[in-house]
């Protein structure tokens, strides 16, 4: 009973700290998705230079640790270019997570677009649509259903990776949990904290499943 009381006492502050975890994941995945569409289109465009540039972007940001990118944005960038010194930790975290997520999602989107039968593009072009119109009206709408499961996966990964922000002194759910652990001298706090992570994952899994069902009406 004593334990239950303890857990209930921690819960409000844990939920409050979760606002960083959730808002950071949602913002980064949404920005990463928008940027990812353009990087993916660049990767499969006819322009060789653009293709190369997008390939290098993905190579760099998928090939280095997210933690290092976060440190780079927050600590190294201001030393190299002083006017880029941000004062807002949350903004810095959003930038680092977004550029990282964009690299992953670009590959997800590229794979989804390329999985659409080439006949679709040929048919659209033969009806007189431009390349852009065909992409926008025919190919991308069809690829969305195939995007949803891997993007859901990416979202859950980002949600858990947000625990890295404690390194720039931003207090998210994980950091607040370890603060409670050390001040209350008990590891019991990991239990409600893990439950919260599971609840968030469950909610977003449900949401992505719903979206997938809605988008499968065409098939």
């Amino acid at each position: 009973m004593r334990n239950l009381e303890l857990v209930m006492g921690w819960l409000p502050s844990l939920i409050f700290a979760s606002r960083i975890t959730i808002s950071l994941s949602v913002i980064s995945v949404v920005i990463g998705m928008l940027a990812g569409v353009f990087i993916a289109l660049g990767r499969i465009s006819a322009n060789g230079a653009l293709r190369k540039a997008c390939g290098i972007y993905i190579f760099i940001f998928r090939g280095t640790p997210l933690l290092m990118q976060l440190f780079f944005v927050w600590y190294a960038l201001p030393l190299a270019i002083p006017w880029l010194a941000m004062q807002d930790r949350f903004l810095a975290a959003c930038i680092a997570f977004s550029i990282n997520s964009a690299a992953y999602q670009a590959e997800i989107i590229r794979a989804a677009i390329q999985s659409i039968d080439p006949g679709q593009m040929e048919a659209a072009r033969s009806l007189g649509l431009t390349y852009g119109q065909a992409m926008r009206l025919v190919i991308i709408p069809q690829s969305i259903k195939r995007l949803i499961p891997p993007v859901g996966n990416e979202f859950i990964m980002v949600l858990k990776d947000t625990s890295l922000v404690s390194t720039i002194a931003l207090v998210d759910l994980m950091k607040h949990t370890s603060q409670i652990q050390s001040s209350a001298a008990t590891a019991l706090v990991y239990l409600p904290s893990a439950c919260l992570y599971l609840i968030f994952t469950a909610v977003f899994t449900f949401l992505f499943n719903y979206l997938e069902k809605r988008h499968s009406v065409y098939e």
């Binding site: 010194a85 390194t167 720039i168 002194a169 207090v171 603060q179």
Partner: peptide, 18 residues
């Protein structure tokens, strides 16, 4: 009130005016 993992980060932030 900012709590860092490493002491060097505190001094970096001080020099960066954060």
């Amino acid at each position: 009130y900012f709590v860092y993992d490493k002491i060097i980060q505190c001094f970096d932030e001080l020099l960066l005016n954060r």
